[in-house]
Write a protein that binds this DNA or RNA. Structure first.
Lengths: 193, 193
DNA sequence: CTAGCTTCTGGACAGGTGTCCAGTTTGAGG
DNA sequence: CCTCAAACTGGACACCTGTCCAGAAGCTAG
């Protein structure tokens, strides 16, 4: 089991940031062409016009690289619209649909990111924690339902993501599925007499 | 990307069945000692008293091997008690708790199986389909709630499994969590007109 | 006992992954 | 324009994974 290199530094500056950006972009293109299995850190490096060793300076593995792609998109996602657009269920579903659709434009990319995110590596772990936090913030900011309901919905969200990542579900169907699920879970107690 | 070997034949007889059994058992012991990362098909083969090439005759990878471990335990799990033991929610939770606890005796084993099951390999895929079917049968046999509620709960179940597999949740807490989740999801359907 | 099948062996093999490091390029500041 | 540290290079390296195959060992039936 090879040792992993340093994670990308919290603060990388100027040229480095640019290199990392090029790498993550190249990864997206590479996965579109060769899918997850065919993606190689060396291949990504070549496409980004960078030596393999350089790529390995910033990313310890292809999983780390793909998880970073997802993380960057999530980081750049605007907060869910704070205007109360509908029922609590609808708002919750919308907040997480946006996350599910982050990489949905390319099915190969979404599958790859899902697989990568599940990897058992320290760098991926760190990114996963950050992502989990962000997701939690989004959902608990979207509605003030009971903690149990929030947790149930969050679990269902991850379940749906994984199912989609494994190809048992289509990413394009996730918003509808999440909406249905949310309506099932969140209290309609107020509607009920 | 190496080509995968034949899956273990549907009908393997006598000596072969015994070899496979010894391999799966050795895998359990091996993972207890070295965790997922440290497990090696070659190591399992040695422990089972078998040449590496023989192990690779039946299992294409360590993920395949571990997925088979899980599948065998699920296959041998008795049907959930058909006696209506409680509310629909309780019965559903119980039916899936049993699955969640299949490998819960050893945390390393449960984590390993979860990771393995998520792998993107044809052999794992096949086992996953079988397992998914079995799970679906169990839950839909346990309650006659609405399809939307069933689906929501099933998604939450997978979400919980994955969270546990990644260490964000403890396997021992899954039964309680599933019970809470089931109670959140199920009852309302019938209460509302 | 022997023939003939099935199963297992052991070792070589190609391909791929992440690490390392001595040396070169880059570009910012003096 | 020169200096110097930061950043990148390229190629060798050790390790691991799954595949292959020629032959040995184990069984079963005649």
């Amino acid at each position: 089991m090879p040792r992993t290199t340093e994670a990308p530094r919290a603060r990388l500056s100027g040229r480095q940031a640019e290199t990392v950006r090029r790498l993550t972009e190249a990864a997206v293109e590479e996965v579109a062409e060769h899918r997850y299995e065919g993606l190689t850190v060396r291949g990504v490096a070549k496409r980004a016009g960078v030596a393999p060793a350089t790529a390995y300076t910033y990313f310890a593995s292809k999983n780390h690289l793909l998880a970073e792609v997802f993380w960057r998109r999530l980081r750049d996602l605007p907060e869910p619209d704070p205007l109360p657009g509908g029922s609590p269920a609808d708002r919750a579903a919308e907040a997480l649909s946006a996350v599910a659709l982050l990489v949905a434009d390319d099915p190969a990319l979404s599958a790859a990111c899902t697989t990568a995110m599940l990897a058992d590596e320290p760098n991926v772990l760190r990114l996963r924690a950050r992502i989990g936090l962000r997701v939690h913030e989004r959902i608990s900011g979207a509605t003030d339902a009971s903690p149990a309901a929030l947790q149930a919905f969050e679990l269902a969200f991850y379940g749906a993501l994984v199912q989609a990542g494994m190809g048992h579900l289509s990413y394009r169907d996730l918003p509808d599925l999440l909406a249905t699920t949310a309506r099932t879970i969140f209290p309609r107690t107020e509607e009920c007499p």
